[in-house]
Design a protein around this nucleic acid. Structure first.
Length: 801
RNA sequence: GCCGGUGUGUUGGAAUUGGCAGACGAGACGGACUCAAAAUCCGUUGUCAGCGAUGGCGUGUGGGUUCGAGUCCCACCACCGGCACCA
């Protein structure tokens, strides 16, 4: 027989709405805990069963922390700007704001039905002008500090969204969002100089408690490498500057390659004798998308620049210069020295163009292939470097280059600046105007928020302009500086803008003087525990660290990093083990689960499904186990009797408190639940439960299943509310058992089991093991070679015939 | 190609980090209750051999280290995620 979860859950949700027990206090003298989950994009489909997994996990943490006496901030809001809403609005001829409001209403009802302990008084919405006022304000600060600039450049253009994408949004050559082809397009774009922070974004990872795979992925994305910048003189008098991570191989540089877009080519036009060929190659390269360029990586192409040569500064030899699209303009200096003997790409190119290959590190067979994995090799054919190890040569050459003034040590990053413009309607307007006289001029801060105007059509344009560009009334304005006629920026910000600082707003969400008060920021920051998806590691997570560091530099926030701890959950897959999606038809709606089993069962199952960090398939029949467990918990009320913890149950209770407490900290929610199930089974075996035992049991279970446990608390007549009580303590001394079962192994195979006192001495344990009949039988007349005793675990007797 | 991760019964997954593999669930089978079914309760459930006590074999594959390996080392296979001509 099932308890009436529908009635109980509704009852407590109403009570929580009324009593607001989860609203955090503004008493800044209390110890604080800031638990954060990524706020959702309120899509038209509503919540799916993947959302509640991280929310439940941190809800458990937040509820536990409150019981431990912390002032807990556990907020929720809406990351509501974005394309799907805009597309829906276009299709159905409704204003995106209206669509957003509807979707939020649905999401909020669904979240409330799951009993999350969010502080709803701090709800935020990125599309609210009182919110995006501050997003715009931060942009103005970036602009004023030279970190936002407009640049004409080749960008990623999604052919379907008709919109520019950031590098981070292009996945495998296609649009991350819609999967359509991405092409190169030259456009004037707002850019944010995240590259200025590359070094700090890498270095500061060391101080943070992020899970390793997040750190690794961010490090790889930022891509720091250490090498040298070297000047190669040319026949034109200009130096051709290259970046290399292998300055030790400089003697082996037998030719040079510049990117097709390299600016020196234009300078050399007059001297280049095969300009037609060069131009043809440039044209071809320009028409390839990035994807096509990398597709063709098996076959190197290129053209020699005739009429211009360079000189290897160490060998003094004249060497040819090529253009080839295997060299990228956007990395390093856009030019390389080619060392075919020790670089696979250079090797292929040299073979194809019959260029000399000079071995400078001994150990490989350069007749067959480039010798790249040569850290342990010895230098040859390298003048004063001969005989050195690669490592020694690196130091020696850099010293030499610096002394002679022809090069220097240099650190490079793969990270590029952030393309910040989007040619769409449903985003934050960029608060900049363009004046023919004054250039790009920021709006005065008093003019914020610059509100998104109503337009007739949200349809993106084919010419690559934002729908806002049609709003002549809005676009035409006056220059804040000279008062002359000027035009507003019509591109909007990317979706990542609002989410780059939202966690700051939660600390003081209604402030209209600042993005948040310094006192609130000082108290609440940094976020103590932030959980979110791996897919945001090189997007939202990196962007928000960048903005935060900038805000720290200008004195707005008190900490150099926004989040102290970052964890990530695994995805919930469909029953067939595939990613849940509408097109695969394997989407599970949480509303159905709540209706059939209740929110508490749903929460419990989401946590019991498996390792929190790994993805797991949804299995509807497995939910039954969680449902039965809660039923049995409820039925336990009928076994209730007066009294403290029974002596024979003491160890079990203390161990369970210990296990559940620790497992929550380690995100091992599944084993925490298993421990509670084991305890419940044991209680059922005794057919009774004392009030004190029951109190502990439902307190431990409360963060997982808050409704039914609160109800049971009330039914028992315990004072106040369960969520206001304190987390149970355990006594380590009572966790240890006084007798333990140890295994007796002979040559590594278990042959007997013994009950012994937990503190038995090694000698006694071994003696007891040897006295055992079965052991004697197995030992027969073999010679005991060795005896091993592992305290409380086993005795292993090694014997030979 | 590079970086990261995973591989355990029929099934989702445990295993104190080198110490009794399979906790806790699901499913299946047997039984109780029931006119019957559902629900609930009790029992069995890695695999092979044996009536049995018991024994052999078992954590993707092949080697190794160790008294002892799911766990450590070497080589390989499969799958998943990220990056990808980054000099």
């Amino acid at each position: 027989m099932s308890y009436n979860f529908a009635q109980i859950e509704k009852k407590w949700q109403d009570i929580w709405d009324q009593e607001q027990p989860f609203a955090c206090s503004d008493d800044y003298t209390k110890p604080k805990y800031y638990a954060l989950v990524e706020f959702p994009y309120p899509s038209g489909q509503g919540l799916h069963v993947g959302h509640p997994r991280p929310y439940t996990a941190l809800d458990i943490v937040a509820r536990k922390r409150r019981m431990q006496g912390y002032n807990v901030l556990f907020p929720m809001g809406w990351d509501a700007f974005g394309l799907p809403t805009e597309n829906y609005a276009i299709k159905n001829h409704v204003h995106p704001a209206q669509v957003t409001a509807q979707n939020i209403k649905r999401f909020k009802a669904q979240l409330k039905a799951l009993g999350f302990s969010f502080d709803w008084s701090r709800e935020i919405n990125t599309t609210d002008p009182s919110y995006y006022k501050w997003t715009q304000w931060i942009f103005l600060q970036l602009f004023k500090h030279g970190l936002a600039y407009k640049a004409e450049m080749a960008v990623n253009w999604c052919t379907s969204c008709k919109c520019v994408l950031a590098n981070e949004e292009v996945v495998g050559g296609v649009c991350e969002r819609c999967g359509s082809e991405v092409v190169r397009k030259t456009k004037s774009q707002w850019m944010l100089k995240i590259t200025d922070y590359a070094q700090r974004l890498v270095d500061d990872l060391d101080k943070l408690d992020f899970i390793d795979r997040v750190k690794t992925q961010q490090r790889n994305w930022i891509g720091r490498s250490t090498g040298a910048q070297v000047k190669f003189p040319t026949s034109q008098g200009d130096d051709l500057v290259v970046y290399t991570t292998r300055p030790d191989t400089l003697f082996g540089a037998t030719y040079m390659v510049v990117a097709p877009e390299h600016p020196l080519i234009e300078k050399w036009v007059g001297s280049i004798t095969n300009m037609d060929d060069v131009r043809a190659y440039q044209q071809k390269a320009a028409h390839k998308s990035d994807f096509e360029r990398t597709e063709l990586n098996k076959d190197k192409t290129g053209v020699q620049i005739k009429g211009v040569t360079a000189v290897n500064p160490l060998t003094g030899k004249e060497i040819p210069i090529f253009i080839s699209d295997y060299v990228l303009v956007s990395y390093g200096t856009g030019a390389i020295m080619a060392v075919p003997a020790h670089d696979t790409r250079d090797y292929e190119f040299a073979k194809k163009f019959h260029l000399p290959i000079v071995e400078v590190v001994q150990g490989g067979d350069i007749e067959k292939q480039a010798f790249t994995d040569c850290d342990t090799g010895i230098m040859i054919n390298s003048g004063f470097l001969n005989g050195m190890t690669v490592e020694q040569a690196k130091e020696a050459i850099i010293q030499y280059l610096e002394e002679k003034g022809i090069g220097a040590k240099k650190v490079n990053f793969k990270l590029r600046d952030w393309v910040f413009s989007r040619q769409r309607y449903w985003g934050e307007p960029i608060p900049i105007v363009h004046c023919d006289k004054c250039g790009y001029v920021p709006l005065d801060e008093s003019q914020l928020p610059l509100v998104l105007p109503d337009v007739k059509s949200y349809e993106p344009t084919d010419n690559g302009e934002s729908p806002l560009a049609h709003m002549e009334d809005w676009v035409q304005t006056t220059c804040p500086k000279c008062g002359g006629p000027a035009r507003r920026e019509t591109d909007t910000m990317p979706q990542w803008a609002g989410s780059s600082w939202y966690f700051l707003r939660y600390t003081d969400p209604h402030n209209d003087q600042a993005l948040a008060s310094p006192a609130a920021l000082k108290y609440w920051l940094p976020v103590d525990w932030y959980n979110g998806g791996m897919e945001h590691t090189t997007l939202h997570l990196l962007y928000s660290r960048f903005w935060h560091k900038f805000l720290y530099d200008i004195g707005v926030v008190p900490t150099p990093e926004p989040y102290q701890k970052r964890t990530s959950h695994g995805m919930i897959l469909g029953e067939n083990g595939e990613k849940m999606s509408k097109s695969r038809g394997n989407v599970v709606n949480p509303d159905d689960v709540v209706r059939e089993y209740g929110a508490d069962t749903m929460r419990l199952y989401e946590m019991f499904i498996g390792d929190f960090e790994k993805s797991a398939p949804w299995n509807p029949s497995s939910i039954k186990g969680c449902s039965r467990f809660l039923d049995r918990t409820y039925q336990m009320f009928d076994m209730l009797c007066e009294g403290q913890i029974r002596p024979e149950m003491e160890g079990d209770f203390h161990r369970t408190i210990q296990k559940v407490s620790q497992d929550i900290e380690d995100m091992k929610f599944n084993t925490a639940i298993a421990a509670m199930m084991t305890l419940l089974n044991k209680i059922y075996d005794t057919k009774s439960v004392t009030r004190e035992e029951f109190k502990i049991f439902i307190t431990l279970l409360n963060p997982f299943a808050p409704h039914v446990t609160e109800e049971l608390w009330e039914m028992c007549g315990f004072p106040g509310r369960l969520n206001q009580t304190s987390w149970p303590e355990y006594d380590p001394a009572k966790c240890v058992e006084n007798t333990v079962e140890i295994a007796v192994m002979i040559n590594g195979k278990v042959r007997a089991k013994l009950q012994v006192a937990a503190d038995i001495s090694e000698q006694d344990a071994i003696a007891a093991a040897k006295a055992n009949d079965r052991v004697q039988e197995f030992l027969g007349n073999m010679n005991v070679v060795k005896e091993i005793y592992v305290k409380g675990k086993l005795v292993n007797i090694v014997a030979k015939p």
